[in-house]
């Protein structure tokens, strides 16, 4: 199994994903992590047993572009990120508008304002 990680800029997300798609990868998962300077968003793709990840750092102030038009199952992960982290995601093919997880605390994983 081979593993690769590409660190990218937020603006190039759609271009990079398009490239990954044309290389024949499938979506494995999307995951957000709260870090000191914002949120890291990690996209993992797979081809056979190989794995390719792309990652970027966002402040969470402006919406992240959805990749659900390139990888259809992405809507589920993106809705989850929206509900748990409070990060806006734009242009999802199926947008629950915050109704996927109706949690008692709004955006529980969101960064605490220092």
């Amino acid at each position: 199994m081979e593993r690769e990680l590409r660190e990218i800029e937020e603006d190039t997300l759609l271009n990079e994903t398009q490239k990954v798609h044309s290389e024949g990868y499938r979506l494995i998962q999307i995951c957000a992590t709260t870090v000191d300077s914002g949120y890291e968003i990690l996209y993992t793709f797979g081809k056979g047993y190989d794995e390719l990840s792309i990652r970027f750092l966002t402040k969470g102030e402006k919406p992240v572009q959805s990749i659900s038009r390139i990888f259809p199952p992405a809507w589920l992960y993106e809705n989850e990120i929206h509900d748990l982290f409070g990060i806006e995601v734009e242009n999802m093919t199926l947008d629950f508008r915050g109704g996927l997880y109706r949690t008692s605390v709004k955006a529980p994983f969101a960064r605490k304002e220092a």
């Binding site: 494995i28 998962q29 992590t33 589920l76």
Partner: peptide, 16 residues
């Protein structure tokens, strides 16, 4: 830990 994230098989199968 800073983060634990679990992507479970059913989650991946819901779009299907």
């Amino acid at each position: 830990l800073q983060r634990m994230r679990v992507r479970t098989p059913t989650f991946a199968n819901i779009p299907a």
